[in-house]
Amino acid sequence: MTIAKRLKAHLDGKGIPYETVSHPRTATASEAAEAAHIPGDKLAKSVAIHLEDGHVLAVVPSSHRVDLSTLQGILDRRLGLASETEVKEIFDDCDVGAAPPVGAAYGVPVVIDESLAGLDRVWFEGGDHRTLISVTGADFDKLMKDARHAEFGHRA
């Protein structure tokens, strides 16, 4: 089990207690939720979004998809999915596709789907395809306190 160095430093620096949950290697957040036997609506999935002047991290439950049209309307900016190269540059200590939703650890603003607020417990990728991080919902809400909250996720 590994946790990305920047993520670990951020969680430790904020005093956020967490547990790691190992699971067999998976390719998607939905597969990770299934492999770890956790509800998909409580696993926060990160989607890197390219803007004309930077990036934003869109965070939705693993059971949902980001509605790019809705998100574009919310942000009132042209956007698209970030390229794999951009994701590698931003999340340089993570495997591609295993980026944590804690944008503050990487200097990336976050917009989070409302459905992830106020949960009892939340899981998210720890930086590889074999480790999830588990935190209380209250601690996840603290981690997301500077994120913009909106409704832009739709069940996949």
Rank of each mutant, 00 (worst) to 15 (best):
D67W: 04
T85E: 15
V21M: 01
D41N: 13
L71K: 07
D41K: 06
V21S: 00
H55W: 13
A32F: 08
D76M: 12
L79Q: 05
A104H: 00
A44R: 01
A35G: 05
I49N: 03
Y18W: 04
A58R: 04
V56R: 08
G54L: 10
D92G: 05
K45F: 11
S62Q: 07
A82R: 02
G107Y: 08
F91S: 06
C94A: 12
E52A: 14
L75K: 09
L81F: 12
S30H: 12
E52K: 14
S62D: 11
V87G: 04
P17M: 00
G97V: 02
R78T: 13
I16W: 02
C94L: 11
D92A: 12
G103T: 00
R25A: 14
G54H: 10
A27D: 15
A27N: 15
A33S: 12
C94N: 09
A82I: 04
F91V: 07
I16Y: 01
K88M: 11
P100L: 01
S30Q: 13
A44L: 00
L43Y: 05
L57G: 00
E19D: 11
E34F: 11
D93F: 07
A104Q: 10
G103P: 03
A29C: 14
R78V: 11
V60Q: 06
A99W: 02
P101Y: 00
H64W: 12
D76G: 11
A32T: 07
A27H: 14
T85D: 14
L79R: 07
T20P: 00
R77F: 07
A98G: 08
F91M: 10
S46L: 01
D41F: 10
A104D: 13
R78Q: 15
E86T: 12
C94D: 07
T20G: 00
C94F: 09
V87W: 04
P17E: 04
V21W: 00
P24M: 00
L81D: 06
R77T: 12
R65Q: 15
V102G: 00
V59W: 02
S69K: 15
S63K: 06
G97F: 09
I49V: 15
D95C: 10
A33E: 04
S22P: 03
V96C: 10
V56H: 02
H23L: 01
H23G: 03
E34R: 13
R25L: 10
P39V: 02
H50C: 09
H55D: 07
D76H: 14
K45I: 06
I90P: 05
P101M: 00
S63V: 05
R65C: 12
D93W: 09
R78H: 14
I74G: 08
V21I: 12
D67V: 01
E89V: 11
P101A: 04
I49A: 06
I38H: 04
E52G: 13
D53Q: 12
I74T: 12
V59Y: 00
D67A: 10
S46P: 03
P24L: 02
R77M: 13
S69F: 11
P17L: 02
A82E: 03
S69E: 15
S62W: 06
E89S: 13
S69R: 14
L68D: 02
A32R: 04
V47C: 11
D76R: 14
